[in-house]
């Protein structure tokens, strides 16, 4: 198992390198640049000085090599738009907030999704199947940037139960987490239903019933392990989706996370901040995929020993 994890971690290095390279050139080659935003007219000599400071006048390949050298030392460079902190400091400040939001959203997704999906799978094509699955379809088709404002409209503005925005006390965190988690709850529900449905049709479930096990025990001990596999496999893409969802959700609810930071950086062409945020995302997604692989191997002995 350790060998498996190490091998996967090693394979991250070339992938990460490719991502860094692609992004670096994608961002730099595009027309326009920082310090040229419409609102802040910068005198040419100041601009020249700024470009010098941020190493933008060197040839592109030189900038690239310098960036890689810094990156290898864990230095993501200075922020070009918000110079009060370095990019690394910004990430350290903002990323935990996004992680917290993502964690709650995942919790919402897993709890609601599993409950709905398993309930539906137990009695297919009955009311307890149709109702949760209809909700799941609604959840998938309503984008988070629609759901968020609608939830605010109802629970914050009309009913006044929850705050409109912010990220200070626990109540603040309810609507953002729900907004971000709902769509994934819907996917999890569909996948869990499909997975359980398939497992429950297998011969070994009949064997378990023939042994006189109670239905609860059949489901918990025998079916669940195989039934959750599709959901586990979905966790990788879900993590990526939660990240992008956080852009919108953090925007709507004014959450001071990395997603908002990223969107602002994109608007302001803050090259270093943009790179920094995307690299954090890329590493996060790679790690998540690794975790998924490990869980899958742990759940299925055939993979583990195969």
């Amino acid at each position: 198992m350790t060998k498996f994890i190490l091998r996967r971690l090693l394979s991250f290095i070339p992938v990460f390198f490719i991502i860094v390279t692609m992004l670096f050139f994608l961002i730099r080659i595009a027309p326009g640049g920082p310090f040229q935003g419409g609102e802040r007219a910068v005198p040419p000599e100041v601009l020249e000085k700024l470009r010098e400071t941020y190493n933008l006048n060197a040839p592109l390949y030189r900038q690239y090599v310098d960036y890689l050298v810094d990156l290898a030392q864990g230095d993501l460079g200075p922020s070009m738009y918000q110079p009060s902190r370095t990019v690394t400091e910004w990430v350290q400040l903002r990323f935990p907030v996004s992680l917290e939001l993502g964690f709650y959203a995942l919790l919402v997704a897993m709890t609601l999704g599993f409950l709905a999906g398993i309930t539906a799978a137990l009695r297919p094509n009955t009311i307890t199947d149709y109702v949760p699955m209809s909700f799941a379809m609604v959840g998938i088709c309503i984008p988070n940037f629609v759901l968020g404002p609608v939830l605010v409209l109802i629970f914050a503005l009309k009913l006044g139960w929850l705050p409109v925005a912010g990220w200070a006390d626990p109540l603040d965190k309810v609507l953002p987490s729900l907004t971000l988690g709902t769509a994934y709850a819907a996917y999890v529900a569909r996948l869990a239903r499909g997975g359980m449905f398939e497992v429950l049709a297998q011969d070994f479930i009949r064997t378990a019933r023939a042994k006189g096990l109670s239905e609860t025990r059949v489901i918990l001990r025998h079916a669940l392990r195989g039934g959750v596999q599709p959901v586990i496999a979905f966790l990788g893409p879900a993590a990526a989706g939660l990240l992008t969802g956080s852009f919108v959700v953090e925007q709507i609810f004014q959450v001071p996370g990395l997603g908002k930071q990223f969107v602002d950086a994109a608007f302001n062409r803050d090259y270093t901040m943009l790179m920094g945020a995307v690299l954090v995302y890329a590493v996060l997604i790679l790690c998540f995929n690794l975790v998924v692989d490990v869980i899958q191997a742990w759940l299925d002995p055939r993979v583990r020993y195969g």
Binding site: D203, F204, A210, R221, H222, R225, G226, D300
Partner: peptide, 14 residues
């Protein structure tokens, strides 16, 4: 009871 196909009648995860 025992069943026809022993390849699928046992739980592969246990």
């Amino acid at each position: 009871m025992i069943f026809q196909d022993p390849m699928t009648a046992l739980n592969p995860y246990m």
